[in-house]
Computed example of a mutant assay.
Amino acid sequence: MSTTKKVLITGAGTGIGRALAIEAAQKGFDLILVGRTSNTLEETLSMCSTSAARRVVADVTQAEGRALIADAVDGSLDILINNAGVLSVGHLADMGDADLERMTNTNLVAPMALTRDLLPALRRSKGRIVNIGSVFGDIAYPFFACYSASKFGLRGFSDAMRRELSGAGIGVSYIAPRATRTASESAFAALIEPMEMTLDTADVVAAQAWDAILKGKRESFPKGKERFFVKVQRLFPSLVDKSVGAQARDPKTLAALKLSIQP
Rank of each mutant, 00 (worst) to 15 (best):
E193P: 00
F136H: 01
L191A: 10
K126T: 08
I170H: 11
R155F: 07
D97K: 11
E185Q: 15
M103I: 09
L165I: 12
Y147H: 03
V204M: 14
C146P: 01
A160R: 10
A179F: 02
D99K: 11
I79P: 00
F188T: 07
P142M: 09
R163G: 06
I139K: 00
V130H: 06
A145E: 08
R181Q: 14
V109Y: 01
I192R: 07
P111Q: 10
V172A: 14
D117F: 06
V204H: 04
V204Q: 15
D138W: 11
T106L: 06
G216D: 00
R162T: 08
D211W: 11
S148P: 04
A187F: 11
S76K: 11
V86T: 09
N107K: 02
G96Q: 11
I170F: 03
S184V: 10
I213Y: 02
L191Y: 04
D117S: 14
D138Y: 11
I79D: 00
A206G: 07
R124F: 05
A98H: 11
D138C: 09
P194V: 12
T180W: 10
R116I: 00
E219I: 00
D159A: 15
I129F: 04
A212W: 01
M103T: 04
A209E: 01
S150M: 05
D94L: 07
V130K: 08
A84T: 02
K217F: 05
R123I: 03
V109C: 06
S173G: 02
Q208R: 15
L77Y: 05
D99I: 00
G171E: 05
K217I: 12
I139G: 04
A113T: 12
L165H: 08
N105S: 15
T115N: 08
D211Y: 05
R124C: 05
G167W: 07
Y174A: 07
F136R: 03
A212M: 13
G167P: 01
S173W: 02
N83F: 04
F144P: 06
